[in-house]
Amino acid sequence: MAGWTVVTGGSRGIGAAVVRRLAASGRDVVVGYRRDREAAEARARDARAADVHAAVLQVDVADPASVDALFDEAESFGPVVGVVANAGAATVTGRLEDVPVEAVRRDLDVLVLGTLLTLRRGVPALRRAGGGAMVAISSGAATLGSPGEFVHYAAAKAAVDTMVLGLGRELAEDGIRVNAVAPGLVETGFHLDPDRPARIAPTVPMRRVGEPHEIAAAVAWLLSADASYTTATTLRVAGGR
């Protein structure tokens, strides 16, 4: 399907891998970012090298006006047929009783409200395009709970799974599919403890850390026509964990 795909948090980590994968498959992409414009511009240059169109737009996904502006500008380029709600936050770790409430609130604003606002605003955009697909990035933490690390993050990702379930069913007759990918332990700069991947890897049945491109492949499949009968579903990509 010709048109643009909006990727929030597209400047680094899983988001950057998604941008690369979508560009390689011929999709025009909007690289949404919050702070690091230089990294976002680099992702857009890489995408253009794959002979697709790419644009860089700043967005604060927890701000409804900012999300509206993102989609308004994206639609000015052409029809938006895909959305990847990838922007995330995990700024505090530890036992829930010890983490500052304001830090938890900031994370939940991005993880829950930000994902909800992105998907919500994506609906009219995709409807105007005649249909399409949206993918939210969840986490294997949603079913593991992440005790002693970030219970609030796990709870937020469980909320994302519920959003996808409800919205996917809500839009099933409208030609708009809504799914999620739940990564497990992945090698990105997202970990507050840089030693965490090596520490957790032995608990993964496949005995290794995942790579961002492995998550991006699942996202690309869910956006593609190959997943035409898949909606309201969370696809776990977690090495068996």
Rank of each mutant, 00 (worst) to 15 (best):
V178Q: 04
G148I: 01
G175K: 09
R207Y: 08
L108Q: 07
I200N: 07
T188I: 12
V123T: 11
T203F: 15
L126T: 06
A159M: 10
Y153T: 03
E211A: 14
P147V: 00
L165A: 12
A216W: 12
S138E: 02
A227P: 07
L144N: 12
G131E: 11
S146R: 10
G189Y: 09
G131C: 08
I137N: 05
L222H: 00
G148Q: 03
I176M: 11
D161E: 13
L223S: 10
F150E: 08
T203L: 14
A217Y: 13
D195M: 08
L113N: 15
R196L: 15
T143L: 15
L126W: 01
E149A: 15
R199F: 08
A217W: 12
L144G: 10
E214T: 04
A201K: 05
V178P: 03
R120N: 10
P202C: 13
G131N: 11
G132L: 04
D226K: 11
A172Y: 15
L167F: 14
T115N: 07
A129K: 03
A217G: 15
A180P: 02
A133N: 02
V219W: 03
H152G: 03
A159N: 07
S138A: 08
L222P: 00
A227L: 08
E187T: 09
A136I: 02
A159S: 11
L144H: 13
L126I: 05
P147C: 01
R120H: 15
A141S: 06
M134D: 06
S138P: 06
V181Y: 03
S228N: 11
V160H: 00
D107L: 00
I137A: 04
L171N: 08
G122D: 10
G130S: 11
L108G: 06
D174H: 15
G130I: 06
F150V: 12
G131D: 07
A142G: 08
R208C: 01
H191P: 02
P205M: 00
A155R: 09
M134W: 10
G168D: 01
S228F: 11
I137Y: 03
T188L: 11
E173Q: 14
S224Y: 07
P183R: 02
H213R: 14
S138C: 04
A218D: 00
G166M: 09
A216C: 09
T118N: 04
